[in-house]
Amino acid sequence: MVELVARTPCEGLLPYEAGEAELSEIIPKRITSLAPFEDSTLLKPLKTALGVELPAPGQSVKAKDGRIVWTGQNQFFVLDAEVPALDAAVTDQSDAWAMVALGGAAAIDVMARICPLDCAHMTASQVARSLIGHMPAIIIRTKTGFEIMVFRAFAKTLVNEVSHVMDAVAARGALST
C-alpha cells in the first residue's frame, strides 16, 4: 500500500522574514464555501450552529469555533468551524486554498507594492477580493496585518512574489535610515 504524505500548501516555503515584515502560513481546520439560496430563512441552522448572521459584503465575522468571511457576490467561506446540514450550495474547499499571514510594521508597505487596492485604508476584519500581482486573492485585514488566500496551485508564486517585495521594502528601508 502506498503511504501518502499530506503536505500543507506552503510547506518548506514559509515562514519568511525580511526587514520589518513577516510571512507565515495559516492552516485553517477546514474551509467551506457557502452560496446561499434566495430564501434567507433557509440559513437558520447556520445561525443556530455558529451564533452569527452572514457578514455584509467586504466583511468577516467571528463565529463559534471559527469565522465567516464574505468572499464574493453571494458567496462566503466558513473558516475552521463545521457547517451544519444546510439548504444552500455548500462545498468543502479545505485543500483548495493557500493561506498566509503577512505581519510586521512594514506589512502595509508590502501590500502597497503588490496589490492595486489601498489596503492601508482597510480596518480589522474587513475583507476584499483583489489581486496579488496577477493572482486573484482574498485579502483579510487583521489587527496585526493581513491574511491572504489564493488558489492552492499558486502557493509557490504567492510566496515568491510577496517575499521578493518584502526584500525590496527592507532594502528601501535600509537605504533611507
Partner: peptide, 9 residues
C-alpha cells in the same frame, strides 16, 4: 464588464 478579480459580479 465583470469584476473578475473581485466579487465576480
Amino acid at each position: 464588464w465583470q469584476h473578475e478579480a473581485g466579487c465576480a459580479a
